Amino acid sequence: MTDAASSPRPPFRLDGRVALVTGAGRGLGFEMAKALALAGARVAINGRDAARLDDAAARITEAARHPVRALPFDVADMAAGREAIAGLARDEGRLDILVNNVGARDRRPLSDFTPTEAERLIATDLLAPMMLAREAAAHMAAHRHGRLITVTSIAGHVANRHDPVYTAAKAGLTGLMRALAVDHAREGITSNAIAPGMFATETNEGLVRDARFSEFVDIRVPVGRWGRPHEIGAAAVFLASDEASFVNGHVLTVDGGQTVRM
């Protein structure tokens, strides 16, 4: 039996590991993919916009100095996801890390949702990561090593007004992560989550420029600012690394202390 202490691999290095990061064309997904690649992993990134994805892959490749692969597909398309994971594992000979990062936003009161709209959001935010994790775990089990990393949200633990479907989906992801941690641990696969708080991503650009909302951030977040997108990368590297081999079923909250403030 080997462990992190007896391994010749330098701490927090991912050389020889193969990773897939969904929703990595921009924002937090891009930063996590970049961090994994800089740590030595062979990374594939996913998104629906092929041109944006190619540009992101090129930028990460330049930074990491080894190729990053673009895999354009819609995670809600179960057949496409299964085919992409199988192809990546076949081409690379293995799959070690899945970062389930894709998440759609539709923040409205429950009374405004039709059943079809609610099903669509849950299909993208909960069902798609569930099925991708299932496919990835099957390939990881063959090598007795894997890291399932689910990007949830602090919305899975604390609720905003008029945001029930998104909140339910994120809370469901936390439950899924814990169930996978129990089901796959004996196969050498750990399952953990990252719960980001408020980050100054492209998606939040309008709020970042809003002076009134920035005042709210200053009051609500103990560190007094938005998260910088690159600050999420180290969390993904840690959970993907050998140093996290005994971390299983855990939610790593990266929110500047927002969820612990009264």
Rank of each mutant, 00 (worst) to 15 (best):
M140L: 08
A57N: 00
G81K: 12
G197V: 03
V21Y: 04
A133F: 12
R108V: 02
L28M: 12
P196H: 13
M198V: 02
E62L: 14
D54V: 08
N248R: 11
L88C: 02
R228Y: 09
G172V: 03
R261D: 00
E117N: 05
G47F: 01
R209Q: 13
H157A: 12
F213I: 05
E83G: 02
G224C: 09
R65I: 02
R225W: 09
G206R: 14
R212T: 15
V165K: 04
A159R: 00
K170Y: 06
V158A: 08
A168R: 10
D3V: 04
L173E: 08
D242M: 02
L121C: 11
H157Q: 14
A84W: 02
M177F: 05
T152I: 07
D91P: 00
P196I: 12
G233L: 03
R147N: 06
L126V: 11
N160M: 10
A70E: 02
R90T: 13
T150R: 04
A24N: 08
F30I: 01
N101K: 06
E231G: 04
A104T: 11
A142N: 07
T150G: 00
D255L: 10
N248H: 09
F238I: 12
P72M: 09
A185G: 14
A33P: 03
R69H: 08
R48W: 04
G40N: 09
H139Y: 13
Q258S: 06
T124Q: 13
S245C: 11
G206V: 13
M177I: 07
L38R: 14
H157M: 14
S191F: 06
R105Y: 14
D15S: 14
G27V: 01
A64R: 02
H184Y: 15
L71M: 10
D3R: 12
A19K: 03
L98C: 07
L127G: 02
T259F: 09
A159K: 00
T203Y: 15
R225F: 07
R144L: 03
V102H: 08
P10H: 10
A159V: 01
A44P: 00
R26Q: 09
M131R: 15
R186S: 14
H184R: 14
T167D: 01
R13V: 05
L126N: 10
E243R: 11
G23F: 06
L28I: 11
F246V: 10
P229L: 07
D242Y: 00
L20C: 03
V254P: 08
A56P: 00
M262L: 15
V247D: 07
G188F: 08
I45P: 00
G47N: 02
N100V: 08
A171S: 12
I194S: 02
E187I: 01
T259Y: 09
T190F: 05
D210Q: 09
F73L: 05
F30E: 00
V151A: 00
V237E: 07
I219G: 07
A244N: 08
G233I: 02
H230R: 14
H157Y: 10
G224D: 08
L20Y: 01
H250Y: 10
A179R: 07
V18T: 11
A133N: 15
A39G: 05
P229C: 06
G227N: 09
G175N: 11
V223K: 08
